Simulated scan of single mutants.
Amino acid sequence: MAPKMPQEHSDFRKQQILTAAWECFAEKGYQETTIRDIADRMSLSTGIIYSYFKGKDELLEAIHSCSMENKKRIADKIRQKETAREAINELFSLFLESCPFEELRKAMRADLRSWSEALKRENFRKLFISQYEYVRTIVAQFVEQGAEKGEFKAEFDPYAFVGFVNALLLGLEVQVALIDEAASRSYVDKIKNILLSNVWRDVMDGSGDGPLE
């Protein structure tokens, strides 16, 4: 019997495989990527990959699990904010600051290439929907709390706003996947200014914080 590897080594190897798979999916797409492509990127045999994962489906599921954990870490930071204004500012800032830009670009490209699979396969569709619903729930929490505190203008519709923010985040994935870092940051700043200046009560009436500096 072969000696059992320490758990730390096993976890490290799994992460290496997931990173290689994620990079291949970003470059070639899920459908075009083979286990051989992933193994070649790591200079390993396909047998080693199969000793950790049954195939591409399980790899993609594991990648989405890692993505969900990252979203939970971001959500924990957002929950520490006292107002909805601060939470939204933090949400869009963390979107670009959660990792180096080139890694973020790869992640967005991998997501975009995987969306086509989600349209064709029910198990993948459920993975994407679970992430979408999780983000929507987090946004809804701080928006509803802000509405209860009277942070927003009287005509504000919190439910429509939650959908709007989610749509903007999905649009940002496309932006990051296609354009350079400077343009992406400029786009995020403009989105934040629009969001933070059109739905909040003005500081002039004593019921809000005014435009974000």
Rank of each mutant, 00 (worst) to 15 (best):
A84C: 03
Y187Q: 14
M5L: 13
S65P: 04
A118M: 00
K54T: 15
F128E: 05
R36G: 10
N70V: 14
K126R: 11
K81L: 08
L119Y: 03
S51W: 05
A87D: 11
G55R: 03
Q7V: 13
L104A: 13
N198M: 14
D11Q: 08
E90R: 15
T19M: 05
Q175W: 06
L212E: 13
A21R: 09
S116P: 01
E155Y: 11
Y50F: 15
Y159V: 02
N193V: 07
A154F: 11
F164H: 08
G171I: 00
T19C: 06
A167W: 08
Y30R: 00
A147N: 09
E155F: 06
F92K: 04
Y134W: 06
D57C: 04
C24T: 05
P211C: 07
K56R: 02
S10W: 10
C66E: 12
L91I: 08
A84R: 09
R73K: 15
P100L: 13
D76N: 13
N123R: 12
L18T: 01
F161C: 02
V199I: 06
A160F: 07
A147H: 11
A118T: 07
R13F: 09
F128D: 14
A118Q: 03
Q31Y: 08
F92Y: 14
G146H: 02
Q175I: 11
M42A: 03
K120I: 00
N166G: 00
E117H: 09
T83S: 15
E23N: 07
E23K: 15
E213N: 06
A118S: 03
L170S: 07
M108R: 14
Q80H: 15
R105M: 10
A177S: 00
V139C: 10
F156A: 02
L212K: 13
I88M: 13
E90L: 15
